[in-house]
Nucleic acid binder design. Sequence first.
DNA 1: ACTTGATCTAGACCTCGCTCCAGATCGTAG
DNA 2: CTACGATCTGGAGCGAGGTCTAGATCAAGT
Lengths: 140, 140
Amino acid sequence: MTTTGAPVPSLSIGEVAERTGLSVHALRFYEREGLLVGPVQRTSGGRRRYTSFDVEWLLICVKLRESGMPLADLKHFAELVRRGPGNEADRLRLLDAHRQRVDAQIQALEECRSVIAWKVGVYAEHLARGEADGLWDPTA
Amino acid sequence: MTTTGAPVPSLSIGEVAERTGLSVHALRFYEREGLLVGPVQRTSGGRRRYTSFDVEWLLICVKLRESGMPLADLKHFAELVRRGPGNEADRLRLLDAHRQRVDAQIQALEECRSVIAWKVGVYAEHLARGEADGLWDPTA
DNA sequence: ACTTGATCTAGACCTCGCTCCAGATCGTAG
DNA sequence: CTACGATCTGGAGCGAGGTCTAGATCAAGT
């Protein structure tokens, strides 16, 4: 029954690279590093076939990496999921800690942006007033 | 006249490290890499003395680095400032490009945050409903 | 059968941004 | 004068996160 449905469409490493934005090199690297939940299936010829689960997980990985989670934490998270139910509190802690770091990061970036925007404004005003008005604060 | 005022209080590398959050190693490294606008002054004995200009510039550097500007761009910016007036348009372009990257970064982070917050919510709800309710989407 | 392009493995290599070390010197407090 | 901590230089080393190479194999089109 469960084994005879339409064959779940599986993807080659190249297709997954396209869909996730990771390079094929990075995909193999992630696998070696134990960042995937399960082992990737193979064809008789040894080529990887990724399931949609794999791809979903990878898309989450991409989001977590994009927001600065180190590979070590990602690996830890993968391990928790791999071990199956029973450690949801741990997973929650891990994600929530990361969420807080992301919030802090956003705040820091917004501060940076305002500093930069102010400096951009200084230069723009200077240029608007003409190029030849002399002395400049070297730090401006 | 201009040479006999109160001696501008200058700081040692350790004091600058404290004030900027950069390590003394990093400060020497930045200098070697040409990331400072001018050469740092030295005492007769060869120790660095940083002016408040230096410190201000370093604080800007810190903000730019914090927001992800690569050292190469920082160096480029320092070179422009070092060359003096006349290239304000270039400086503006450099900073404005960076501002745009920061904006994009903030947007990306906010997207990440919402994905993460959603997952945190999923786990939290699961835990609130009790630990023993069975099957789990492995990607959850 | 042949060609072409994607994929395979193991492992070397790379960039970035510091960090640390060794061994010498400075400078200030006792 | 002596100690001791801070600083000096040049260069090696490091951790993160991939990236790339070589040489072989697989799979699909003609």
